[in-house]
Design a protein around this nucleic acid. Structure first.
Length: 511
RNA sequence: GGUCGGUUCAUCUAAGGGUUAGGAUUCAAGAUUUUCAUUCUUGCCAUAGGGGUUCGAAUCCCCUACCGACUGCCA
């Protein structure tokens, strides 16, 4: 087992969009596979026909691709252990379920869902919980309680039945979880889980064990919500006689919502202003839209990076990692056990780190489409120059417009606060003089402009700050932005002069 | 309710019996930027509570509290 090839799987159910917690699970599986030179597979767990959501599987695949977590095997990815969609493996599960019935590890049950619902309601009314298990199974309609002839008759009559696991009555099941250490369960508390449904499909429990075995999965890395069914899965491997080769288990902590209680859920994003899904998702039933990290302007590397640090750390102070670096530093031992609260502020910080590392060239290519959408056509070189100036004030590509729109369009209005603070008596006259000075400039570049300006200011004895801030208001509309003379240079002489004179006209005399 | 898991600054986390309990984010202050943002510096802020064990506990044990997951012919 120890020298076995590492093979891990990400096994989502296509019942909706992939949650960021799911992406993290995929990431940790991916990192583990890369770290150990193993295989990362994608398996679609679509055994519940009633919960099929159109587009969900495509969404999952597209999300993984966007993140760069490309499976080595999976539906559409090839691999020697396929098919990788459980609905396409339908035929193989029944035999395994029957094998368990034959060996006495399982039995057939004829109770209908309606009957079971009634038992549950009844128990609940009496303040107890109904459990289909050792204590109750003999009083229910199954191949254990019914005479063999009756069982024969029912099956012969085509009565639908499910196959349930026959949970041992009082057995301690202990497993060494790679993240949590030793965990022990007593089967007393467990029930006879359905393994094979009356609709001919296996449940998750049967399918995941059979498939993990058949696909030679060496390590199961999944969410904490699976911990309670771990003893069942362990027992299934035992029942099949697969204990020697069965995978090792690790259960990842949950991602909690930023404020309040509970795990992060799909509504939290809209309420708190951040995405919980990797990609934009349009709910095909309700038509509702859920924002995505991609559409919100996050870089996939940043998204992955922030996800990785949510529940894992390398034990050093390093926080920024490439995927490859994460893979080399990754280990399950360094995954924390407790749930982590997601912090949108830190997420923003991560994206900023990645944005700052990108060149102006790279960023400009992302900004051009934004400008284009606003019917602004400029050369790439101009965009590069602008990006260069304002990049450090941006966290997201989308910030470039807010931070730099004045490079592409004259201010439609002037910031009131700035005007009342800076547009004082005497200032307009000085601005007019500067306009005159600039109109005679021969070399329209930041450095010489600044020199001429400074010389003029000294000669006149004007206050630098006052005049510069006033000029800034005229050119950008407020007291923001990079170096004033760089702005002049990028705007060009004609545009600069035009903005100065419109401002003079619109703002009127100082007050 | 039961079972299982968890609990270090507001948040993500480090410290696997011996540190002034460290870093990051947020926040605040100062510097720089004749603007704003950035950047830099500094600061604020934590071992859930109670018992043990030990010369010594954030670390090991027990109890309590709180939080979470699960408790379906869902995954």
């Amino acid at each position: 087992m120890s020298d076995r090839r590492v093979r891990v799987r990400f096994a989502p159910s296509p019942t909706g969009p992939l949650h960021m917690g799911g992406v993290r699970t995929a990431l940790f599986n991916y990192l583990f596979a890369r770290k150990h030179g193993g295989d990362f597979l994608l398996r679609i767990e679509d055994t519940d026909q009633t919960r099929y959501v159109p587009g969900a599987e495509e969404y999952i695949v597209e999300s993984l691709r966007w993140c760069g977590l490309v499976p080595d095997e999976g539906p559409g990815f090839g691999g020697a252990y396929g098919p990788y969609r459980q609905s396409e493996r339908k035929d193989i599960y029944a035999g395994y379920a029957r094998q368990l019935v034959a060996s006495g590890w399982a039995y057939t049950s004829f109770d209908t869902p309606a009957e079971l619902d009634a038992y549950r309601a009844e128990a609940e009314a009496a303040g107890r919980t109904f459990s289909y298990g050792p204590a109750t199974r003999m009083g229910l309609r199954n191949s254990l309680s019914l005479p063999a002839s009756e069982v024969q008759r029912l099956t012969g009559a085509g009565e639908p039945y499910a196959i349930r696991f026959k949970m041992p009555e009082d057995l301690d099941v202990t497993e060494e979880d790679l993240i949590r250490g030793s965990v022990t369960f007593n089967t007393r508390e467990l029930d006879d889980k359905v393994l094979f449904k009356s609709d001919g499909m296996p449940t998750y429990h049967l399918a995941n064990v059979v498939d993990d075995h058949l696909m030679e999965i060496s390590h199961v890395i999944r969410g904490e919500e699976w911990l309670p069914s771990l003893p069942l899965h362990i027992l299934l491997y035992r029942a099949f006689g697969w204990e020697e080769t069965r995978p090792r288990f690790s259960h990842l902590p949950l991602i909690l919502k930023p404020q309040g209680k509970g795990k992060l859920s799909k509504r939290d994003g809209d309420k708190m202003g951040f995405p919980v899904f990797p990609l934009l998702w349009k709910d095909p039933e309700t038509g509702e839209h859920y924002r995505g990290y991609r559409e919100d302007g996050y870089f996939p590397e940043a998204f992955l990076n922030l996800l990785a640090l949510l529940g894992w750390n390398p034990g050093t102070d390093q926080e920024i990692f490439t995927l490859a670096e994460m893979a080399t530093s990754f280990s399950l031992e360094r995954v924390v056990k407790s749930g982590s609260r997601f912090d949108p502020e830190k997420a923003r910080w991560f994206n900023r780190q990645y944005l700052q590392k990108k060149s102006a060239q790279e960023l400009a290519r992302l900004v051009v489409p934004i400008l284009y959408a606003k019917n602004i056509t400029v050369t790439l070189a101009t965009v590069v120059a602008v990006v260069e100036e304002i990049k450090e004030r941006c966290d997201f590509v989308g910030d470039f417009w807010e931070q730099g729109r004045y490079f592409f369009e004259a201010p439609a209005e002037y910031d009131e606060k700035a005007v009342s603070k800076r547009w004082k008596p005497g200032i307009p006259a000085a601005v007019e003089e500067i306009t005159g000075l600039f109109s005679t400039a021969t070399v329209w570049e930041a450095a010489p402009l600044k020199e001429e300006f400074s010389a003029f200011m000294n000669e006149k004895g004007y206050h630098f700050g006052d005049v510069m801030n006033a000029l800034r208001i005229c050119l950008v509309g407020g007291n923001v932005g990079p170096d004033l003379f760089r702005i002049c240079e990028l705007l060009g002489k004609a545009e600069t002069l035009a903005r100065l004179s419109t401002a003079l006209r619109k703002l009127g005399p100082g007050h």
